[in-house]
Amino acid sequence: MRQKRQIKFSRKGSKHEARVGFALGTVPMIGFALFSLLPIILAIIMSFMKIKGFNFNNATWVGFDNYIKLFQDPKFGKSIKITFLEALALPFSIIISLLIATLLNRKVKGTKAFRTIYFIPFVCSVVAVSTMWKWLFEEQFGILNQIREAFGQAPIGWLSDSKYAPWSMAIINLWSGPALGIILYSAALGNVPKSYYEAASIDGASKVSQFFEITLPAVSPTTFYLLVTGTISFLQDFTRYQVILGNNAGPNNSGLTMVFYVWQMVFKYNTTMGMGIASAFSIIIGLIIGIITALYYSTSRFWVSYDY
């Protein structure tokens, strides 16, 4: 009798449990449907339309016209090239992160204070940091040119010369980029068992080979994470370019990243290009990111190890 009642109770409970669980899990699903799925479907539809202004009132179906126009547009290829060149800062940023985290992991006195300082760029707003660098790069009075002049060298147009502007932007990326990696690598390095290194040094392995044989594989999940998330955000970088170089993307479009060009199509060239072709470009950007992410995942089993 007692046994029976308990079974009854748990069965009733599990039905109720399913209802509560489903309700709680559905809330983010609604958000996903409204704010991700619906816009994605719309973006695909919009990429086949010519849209004037900011609504569907004057929209016409143009088929693959937008995509064809994109591939004929020299600025399209240029913006892809610029974005990928700028994204080259990512591997350097990851290397700096690992280097600094390795130093922090030696646990000398004051490590905590250093870690606090290194993470600061991560909590700063892009607008403020970009404005700060705009001042440092300022051609006449900025500190960088003043330092150059102090060493007897001619000032250069960090942001106004199309030869230097992309490099200046990369410097900013290198300055603010490593903050996240330093924190993540510090946590990962702290989790590597000391006994691995002890065993390796008894076997006579040098510090350098210990780094490549133990440390690198042990932190490979972090490297993978930084590479995936870093690529996704680098390939969509836009804000700092707009804040620093202005709506025209700098001298000779030298800071025109892919997303920046999408923005220009909508807001600067609305009458000639507009949201239709911009949607087509955004779909292409999405595909580029998807393909690269898939490549990372498919190669990950060769170099990412979760065994540590």
Binding site: P39, I40, A43, M46, I232, Q236, V262, V266, S282
Partner: peptide
């Protein structure tokens, strides 16, 4: 990627 959902 956020850019895909931005305009729609």
């Amino acid at each position: 990627p956020g850019i895909v959902t931005l305009m729609p």
